[in-house]
Amino acid sequence: MDLRLKIWRQKDASSQGSFETYPMEDVSPEMSFLEMLDALNKKLVEQGKEPVAFDHDCREGICGSCGMYINGHPHGPVPAVTTCLLSMRYFRDGETIWIEPWRARAFPVIRDLIVDRSAFDKIQTAGGFISVNTGGAPEANSIPVPKKDSDNAFDASICIGCGACVAACKNSSAMLFVSAKISQFALLPQGRIEAKERVRAMVEKMDELGFGSCSNTGACEAECPKQIRLTNIARLNREYYKAF
């Protein structure tokens, strides 16, 4: 199929960006979205032009590197799929596809579709851990955990840190991201010991880094490629109230 790509090009953080148009012929429906961009970049390089820069790595939806706005949706129009696994079979011949970087104050653009998500790491550094030294752990089965709690903790823990929730939110809130880690640890006995300090530190850091507030519209949940639930935000709020 033939497509028209409208891609956001921006040289670096301090330059002004703009949309460039690229016709793209002979796109196979079997390609992934990133393979389609690979093909475009091959063409651009062979023409002596600068290829489109984008983050990507595992290409199996688990590392969280890739992510871009595709036709107004983070990771494109298909639910529960990262950009790398988005198949071109969901697009039609002749379609115009708009491709943009995440847009959020806390995620400045580095180049083209690459943004700086180090704010996420900073939030995790503030408290996203259980303080146990190597060698100091008790025997694993000495801490029984109800299967239900363990399963719920797992469902929260699968966040890949891609940033789609922030990009989807009109307030650029990071609540879903933060709530996933808070929930995981809040549900496990190992995590309860530092629960108060953790939630205070992570929320404080999140606010400091320029993420917006949550107004419960649920766009984050709708766009999350890993389907992290809004109930985690409720749990985060509960944990936060309990922490003072």
Partner: peptide, 15 residues
């Protein structure tokens, strides 16, 4: 160590 770090390994009904 991983269990103590909060890695949610699969569990049986007895925990």
């Amino acid at each position: 160590h991983f269990t103590a770090l909060g890695v949610p390994f699969a569990r049986d009904y007895g925990g």
